[in-house]
Nucleic acid binder design. Structure first.
Length: 570
DNA sequence: GCCGTTTTCGGCCCGACTGTTTTCAGTCG
C-alpha cells in the first residue's frame, strides 16, 4: 500500500469532520498526519508490517498509529466507514471548489440537500443560494466561475512554467512608481517541483501605483481581489498571482512568512511562542516592541537560528538541524563542473556534438558526456554497437577541434525487461560514462521492475542509473519500483543515481534524493539536453538536489575531471 | 488528536480580503 493512499484516508476524515464542525485541532491533527505520511520516503505500510514504531513519525500519535495498523492489516478503516455513513460521498468533493469551505458546504447541504457539483451549479444558476444566510448574488456568480475552473481541472504548474511567468510579471511590476524591491516568495521560492500560485512581494514608497498597474497586466484574465496591500488575479493560463505590498521594515518577515511552507512557519512560530515572542508577516515582536523584520536572517536570528535556505523549509527536520548547527551546506549551481547526459543529432537531439560542446564551454563547464540512446529506443533512432563505435570515434575527432573542455564518450543504454543491457559489454567498455535507463515496458509489477533494474545496474560497466523512477511531472506517474531497495542496490553496485534536471522529469525527486544521500549513494545532476538551450536546465536539477539536502560532495559532477573519472570507476 | 528540557493538561500561527452586513463569518494562504 502506498503512502498516498493512507494519506488520502486521513484527508477524507479531516474533510468530513470539518463539514460536521468537529474540533478544529482534531481536524488539523488528521491533516498533519496526512501530510506527514504523504511526504515520507519510507513506505509506512511496510513499517507497520515490520512492527516499527509509527509514533516516531511526526504528527502520528497513539490513535492515528492504531488507525494506520488497521488500514494496513484490513485494507479498511471502520472509523472512516462510520463517518461516511452519515454523509453523502459527494460532499467532500465540494470542498475542492475554491471559495467553498466546510461551513458553506454544510449550509448548502442542510438547507438545499446539495451534495454534488452539478446540484450546486444548478442551485447557483437558479438563484437559490442567495436566499441562504450571508449569501448574495455576487457569491453565486463567484461560485459558478469557481465551478467552471474546477471542471477544467486547472491545478498546479510545473516549476519551470511558473518561473517564467514570475520573471515576466516581476519585470513588468518593477516599472511601477515607488517600487524599491520586489521578489517572488511561496513554493516557487522553495523550488517545489510544481507551483500552485505565485506570491509576489514588493516594498513600495508612498504613492505607489503598483496595484493599479498589476491589474492591467495583459496576461490577466480575471481580477479576484484588489486592495492596497494585497491583490489577486488569475492569468489566462489559470495560474493565480498574489501581489502584496509591504513596508521596508517588514520585508524580511514577510518574505519569510510568504515563502512558507505553512508547516515550516507553524513550527517556527511555535518556537517563537516558547521564547515569549510573536512572529507575524510584519516582524518578530516582544509585546508591542518589534525586534526584527527588515531582513529574513533577523527573523531566524530572533529565535536563535541561522538562516534556513528556502528549499529546506518544509518542516522536515530543518528547524531541529538549524538549532543544532547541523544544516547541510547545500550545493550551488556554480559547484557543477560538467553535464553528464545529453543527446545530439546522432539520435534524437537537435544539435551537433560540436555545438553542444561549445555551449557547454560557454557555460563554464570543464567536461560533458555525450550519451546517445541505444537501439531499443527506436523512435529516437537509438544506436546499435556498430553505429555507437563510429560515433565514439567521431567524438574523438571533435575533441581535437576544441580546447578547454573534455568531451566524454558515453551512452544511455536501455535496461531491457529481463534486466540485461541493450548493448554488448565490449562496446560499453569503450565508454567513459555508461548511463542505464528504462524507456519502455513500464507496466511490470513492482517486484519485476525492481529485479530488472537491479540486474541492469549490476553490470560492471554501468556508472549511473538515469531518471530512476521514470515519472513525468503532472503527466505520468513513476513505474512501480521499490525505491529503497533500488537505493541499497545502487550503493552495493557503486552506481550513482541521476537527478535528471529536465523540468518535465526532476527524477530523482527531492525526498528520494534525501533518502539516497542519507544512505551514502552518490548522485549526478544531468540535463538530458536535446538542444544547446536545454543545457540551461541544470538549475532545476540543482534546486531538486538542494530540496533533497544535497551538498556538493554528494554530487559527482562537482568533481574536477580526473577525480570524476576515478569516481566513476567501479 | 498531537505534543512536552518550565508541562501528561491545556494549549494548538496569524492576518487580509470578500461579501454580507452595519460588526463579522468564512475562506485563504
Amino acid at each position: 500500500m502506498e503512502n498516498r493512499q493512507i494519506a488520502d484516508i486521513f484527508t477524507e476524515i479531516a474533510d468530513i469532520l470539518d463539514i460536521k464542525g468537529d474540533n478544529p485541532f482534531r481536524i488539523r491533527s488528521y491533516r498533519n498526519a496526512a501530510r506527514s505520511v504523504g511526504d515520507m520516503s519510507e513506505n509506512v505500510a511496510a513499517m507497520a508490517r515490520e512492527g516499527k514504531d509509527l509514533e516516531q513519525i511526526p504528527g502520528i500519535g497513539t490513535s492515528i498509529a492504531e488507525k494506520i495498523k488497521e488500514i494496513v492489516s484490513t485494507g479498511r478503516l471502520e472509523f472512516l466507514d462510520e463517518l461516511r455513513a452519515g454523509l453523502p460521498r459527494g460532499l467532500t468533493e465540494l470542498l475542492k471548489i475554491e471559495g467553498l469551505g466546510p461551513k458553506k458546504v454544510k449550509l448548502f447541504y442542510d438547507n438545499l440537500k446539495i451534495d454534488t457539483v452539478d446540484k450546486l451549479e444548478a442551485a447557483a444558476r437558479e438563484g437559490k443560494l442567495r436566499e441562504l444566510f450571508r449569501m448574495g448574488d455576487k457569491s453565486e456568480e463567484n461560485l459558478i466561475k469557481a465551478i467552471a475552473r474546477y471542471r477544467t481541472g486547472q491545478g498546479r504548474f510545473k516549476l519551470s512554467v511558473a518561473f517564467e511567468y514570475a520573471q515576466s510579471i516581476i519585470n513588468y511590476l518593477k516599472r511601477s512608481k515607488g517600487v524599491r524591491a520586489i521578489e517572488a516568495a511561496g513554493s516557487l521560492r522553495r523550488r517545489r517541483e510544481t507551483v500552485g500560485d505565485l506570491d509576489i512581494l514588493a516594498i513600495c514608497a508612498g504613492g505607489t501605483d503598483i496595484m493599479d498597474r498589476f491589474v492591467e497586466y495583459d496576461g490577466i484574465e480575471e481580477v479576484l481581489a484588489k486592495g492596497t496591500t494585497k491583490s489577486s488575479a488569475r492569468l489566462a493560463c489559470g495560474l493565480q498571482v498574489d501581489v502584496r505590498v509591504l513596508p521596508g521594515e517588514s520585508f524580511g518577515a514577510a518574505l519569510q512568512y510568504f515563502t512558507g511552507s505553512k508547516e515550516h512557519n507553524i513550527a517556527l512560530r511555535t518556537r517563537a511562542v516558547e521564547r515569549k515572542l510573536k512572529i507575524s508577516e510584519y516582524g518578530v515582536f516582544k509585546g508591542e516592541r518589534c525586534l526584527a523584520g527588515r531582513r529574513e536572517e533577523e527573523v531566524y536570528a530572533a529565535v536563535g537560528l541561522p538562516l534556513i535556505a528556502p528549499e529546506l523549509r518544509e518542516n522536515h527536520g530543518e528547524i531541529e538541524a538549524a538549532g543544532k548547527g547541523k544544516l547541510p551546506k547545500l550545493i550551488e549551481l556554480s559547484d557543477v563542473r560538467g553535464d553528464l547526459q545529453m543527446h545530439t543529432t546522432a539520435t534524437d537531439g537537435k544539435e551537433s556534438v560540436l555545438d553542444m560542446a561549445l555551449k557547454a564551454r560557454e557555460l563554464g563547464y570543464d567536461y560533458i558526456a555525450i550519451t546517445e540512446h541505444s537501439k531499443a529506443v527506436k523512435v529516437a533512432r537509438g544506436l546499435d554497437e556498430k553505429r555507437l563505435a563510429k560515433h565514439l570515434k567521431a567524438i574523438e575527432k571533435i575533441q581535437e577541434k576544441i580546447t578547454g573542455l573534455r568531451i566524454l564518450k558515453g551512452v544511455e543504454v536501455d535496461i531491457l525487461p529481463d534486466g540485461s543491457l541493450d548493448l554488448d559489454d565490449a562496446i560499453l567498455k569503450e565508454c567513459d560514462v555508461v548511463i542505464g535507463a528504462i524507456h519502455y515496458r513500464f507496466n511490470l509489477s513492482e517486484k519485476e521492475m525492481t529485479r530488472r533494474i537491479i540486474r541492469g545496474i549490476s553490470n560492471r560497466h554501468l556508472n549511473i542509473f538515469g531518471h530512476p523512477t521514470g515519472r513525468l511531472i503532472l503527466e505520468r506517474p513513476s513505474y512501480e519500483v521499490d525505491i529503497e531497495e533500488l537505493i541499497r542496490a545502487a550503493k552495493d553496485c557503486g552506481v550513482a543515481l541521476e537527478i535528471n534536471a529536465h523540468p518535465d522529469r526532476l527524477d530523482l525527486r527531492d525526498v528520494h534524493v534525501r533518502l539516497a544521500r542519507d544512505q551514502g549513494v552518490k548522485l549526478v545532476i544531468s540535463t538530458d539536453a536535446h538542444s544547446t538551450q536545454n543545457l540551461e536546465f541544470m538549475r532545476y536539477g540543482v534546486f531538486t538536489a538542494r530540496r533533497g539536502w544535497a551538498e556538493a560532495e554528494d554530487v559527482l559532477n562537482t568533481l574536477p575531471l580526473d577525480k570524476l573519472l576515478r569516481a566513476l570507476k567501479k
